[in-house]
Design a protein around this nucleic acid. Structure first.
Lengths: 350, 350
DNA sequence: TAAATAAATTTGCACGCGCACAATTTTTAA
DNA sequence: TTAAAAATTGTGCGCGTGCAAATTTATTTA
């Protein structure tokens, strides 16, 4: 029952444990003859490394740099960080060091700066949400030159230097929104998509969502529901936001459904009367505090939850499985599209 | 940066490592005064056990007996087992031994036998789904005498010898079903609850679900939707099942919604024509293969997913956190009530 | 060629914890 | 007072790694 140790091998080979260690782990500086002998004996005895002892003795620190938007600039990002910390808690004895770097979600310069800093500290990998696509591609290329692979969450991006992606399929979340409107709207109602974002960020995910929504109604025509979409890039300005919405109302008198493509539904709802909002079926993303208020009081009908906790948790676990356990990890892992309503909201992580 | 070790404590307390070890791990045989001093110093230094070293030195094997229904007798139970194995994979170096014991989901005798066997092999804890409530209570009492605590999943049961429960809140799943019917049905439609189960098993969960559904429509009366409920205990007999359903149709001509309280919606749908089923809005539980077919083809409108994977995963993790990390674990952890439709089904674990 | 120096290879020990057992001190009994 | 028993405390081993120290081997210099 007792398993074979390097000590057993050392004894049989007539050398010290240190020499066996150098052979087993290819550290070099061993005479050819001795090396062959040790390998032979190890094989014969069926030696298997005791990973617990190995981890205990090793001083190797795996370093992962995490570059995410600051929760101050966008509420959503509180939870992925919790997921990362929770995963870390589980594996903290494996010698993993996490370097958190935050950037303002509206600043591509800060993003670039922080990822550059991340690369400079030469981590084993960088975990990030590549919200700025053009910048991300450049930075991932730079990382590749430095042999630093990336693990991504939240925003999908294809690049051979990305080990894994964990997050939703934007297209299908839009498609799902279509279904939800379909069962809640009437014949000839209109759905309006509102993208409250500065144009610079995240464009493909927005358009994928719209595409999904439109495709749904291409495939389900019984109710003749029409879809239009608008970008409100000056959404931080109350007055402008409200004016643009009123304009949209005028253009679309049959507007009955509003699809917010991100977590910022609350921005507009903050400016409208409850009675007015109740005329619409509203779907938004993310269980952040200001949205939850409106879900509870009935102004938001559905929230599509992006599993922010698991984005962080699985992202870090991908790192662990790849670097520490040498396991295969999935190149992309699409997280569930959770349909959150008032009646089940309490059971989701928030 | 260097962490505090028992050696540090021993030095400061003027005792040997062995004594510190005895204090830290409550092994007794230490003078009161010395014990107090060691505890005080450990606290001051913020000592945290290095569980890698601890596991390396320890010869203790943690044994957990897992008693679940066999997947052969009920499809659902494939996935919790996968969750357990996945968690195990993550923590396998901690010296955890799992003993799997299966029982036919329809046999309370087999259940009793297997839990009894589990108790006999004297594990550190038993992880089980207490589907048979009367039997479970008796068995948990016996376990208590033997000082074997229980970790439960799927079916909630209150007992002081249960360390934790991971699963859904039955009441709220019924309440959520109410909401889903409410947005899909018309004025004066009727909802029928069908419980396809032998009466012996799981009664409270069934009644809690019905109670949740009824409460929903007590609180939301605008559509005047009426709820009735029936138990089809001979559901394995095609002929009887079909006859009883036809009877129910006759009694309830306004029946437009059907709520299956468990995963057996497919049993009835297997016997009906698609055209007939399409007259009804149908809600069932669990993403098992035969149900998925009907979700895909539109016969089932909503499936409430019970997170079977996480039931297993979290159940085992609760064991690890309690016994190995000595962490507080939640006495009850309600899992999300996932609303699964055709459009998001591919993104849930199955 | 031998001594001196450099390079290559090998050894030995600490690391942190739990456990078994040895050693010591204290208490009890004779 | 002394021996025996009980209570308490101390010590060394195990596991793989990494580093300093030691030893062996190769090369250079006089």
């Amino acid at each position: 029952m007792k398993s074979v140790t390097i000590k057993d091998i050392a004894k049989l080979a007539g050398v010290s444990r240190g020499t066996v260690d150098r052979v087993i782990n290819n550290r070099g500086n061993v005479k050819k003859k001795v090396e062959e002998k040790v390998i032979k004996i190890a094989k014969e005895l069926g030696y298997e490394k005791n990973i617990i002892a190995s981890r205990l003795a090793s001083t190797k620190v795996y370093k992962i740099a995490v570059v995410l938007p600051s929760p101050e600039s966008d509420f959503f990002w509180d939870i992925p960080k919790e997921g990362i910390l929770s995963a870390l808690n589980l594996v903290k004895y494996y010698g993993i060091k996490v370097e958190f770097l935050e950037y303002n979600i509206f600043s591509s310069e800060e993003f670039t700066n922080q990822v550059t800093k991340a690369i400079e500290c030469k981590p084993d990998a960088i975990l990030m949400a590549p919200l700025f696509l053009k910048e991300s591609e450049k930075l991932i290329n730079i990382g590749e030159e430095e042999k630093i692979p990336f693990i991504t969450i939240n925003s999908e991006l294809n690049h051979k230097n990305i080990l894994s992606y964990t997050g939703q399929s934007s297209y299908h979340s839009g498609y799902l929104a279509g279904k939800l409107f379909d069962i809640n709207l009437q014949h000839d109602d209109e759905v309006i998509v509102l993208n409250l974002a500065h144009e610079i960020s995240n464009a493909p995910h927005y358009t994928d969502k719209v595409k999904g929504l439109i495709d749904y109604f291409k495939e389900h025509k019984t109710k003749h529901i029409n879809v239009s979409w608008y970008e409100f890039d000056d959404f931080l300005n109350d007055e402008v936001l409200l004016r643009r919405f009123k304009e949209t109302q005028n253009i679309h008198p049959e507007m009955k459904g509003i699809f917010f493509t991100n977590s910022r539904a609350y921005r507009l709802l903050d400016l409208l009367q409850k009675e007015e909002v109740e005329k619409y079926k509203i779907i938004g993303f993310d269980m952040i505090e200001p949205n939850l208020k409106y879900l509870q009081n009935g102004e938001i009908d559905f929230i599509i939850n992006q599993n922010p906790f698991n984005q962080g948790y699985n992202g870090l676990m991908n790192f662990v499985n790849h670097f520490i356990h040498n396991r295969e990890i999935k190149q992309q892992e699409y997280l569930p599209l959770d349909i959150v309503v008032k009646e089940n909201v309490d059971f989701y992580y928030k």
